[in-house]
């Protein structure tokens, strides 16, 4: 369970949000919406522990993530704005490294299957330099397929730069993850998940 208590985030002198509270039980999907600059990415970075809130706390299974640290990181997949895909490495190497760093080492078969799942089977051994923007994004998202057992997924604009097939694939992975009892938090401007899945929505700003 992911719990947020009385969260306040400031940028400069301005408060982006204040007194934010929510609880996400297993199997919950949360969409964070809001205008540009309303603090969507800031909220996600706070949820990961990359940034510190001005006030309040984020708790995982009842314990503060600041106390859990690596313990929490092991159960978290964060895919940010920057895809963290190295130009010099191939898709396969990129995925293997990011899985190993996250604490869920993936063998060659898992990596291959994950890349195939996101439709990169023909490009797995090409240096990422030669991939298009959307394809690099897919390399990053392939981590979701390789780290199914990781409980919490935090995705910053997962659908940008993707074509419709890839969007469908990501939606499918998210739906499967929710069925397994995983928790997904993502930001998006559009209602992208189908009507069959109920998502909590937080509207920031405004």
């Amino acid at each position: 369970m992911l719990e947020v208590v009385d969260l306040r985030c400031e940028r400069g002198e301005r408060a982006l949000f204040d007194g934010l509270e929510f609880k996400l039980p297993a199997g919950a999907l949360l969409r964070v919406a809001g205008a540009n600059g309303s603090g969507k990415t800031s909220l996600l970075r706070i949820l990961c522990g990359l940034a510190l809130p001005a006030r309040g706390d984020v708790r995982w299974q009842g314990e503060s993530i600041r106390a859990l640290r690596e313990e929490y990181h092991r159960q978290l997949v964060y895919i940010g704005h920057a895809p963290a895909v190295k130009d010099e490495l191939t898709g396969r190497e990129n995925l293997a490294v990011s899985c190993a760093l996250g604490g869920t080492p993936a063998d060659a078969a898992v990596v291959g299957a994950a890349l195939e799942r996101v439709g990169l089977d023909g490009y797995a051994d090409l240096p990422a330099r030669h991939l298009s923007q959307g394809q690099r994004r897919r390399v990053a998202l392939a981590r979701l397929a390789a780290c199914e057992a990781t409980a919490l997924w935090i995705l910053d604009e997962p659908f940008t730069a993707l074509d419709t097939t890839a969007i469908g694939c990501v939606q499918e992975m998210i739906a499967e993850h929710l069925e397994r009892g995983g928790i997904v938090v993502f930001t998006s401007h559009q209602e992208v998940m189908g009507a069959s899945i109920t998502a909590y929505t937080i509207e920031l700003g405004g």
Binding site: C48, G49, L50, R69, E70, H73, R74, L76, Y78, G80, H81, A82, P83, A84, V85, K86, D87, S98, L101, G102, G103, T104
Partner: peptide, 14 residues
């Protein structure tokens, strides 16, 4: 620059 450092901050090791 490419966000890999963020992932290292979120790694399973100190």
């Amino acid at each position: 620059a490419d966000g890999a450092l963020e992932q290292m901050l979120l790694a399973s090791a100190p």
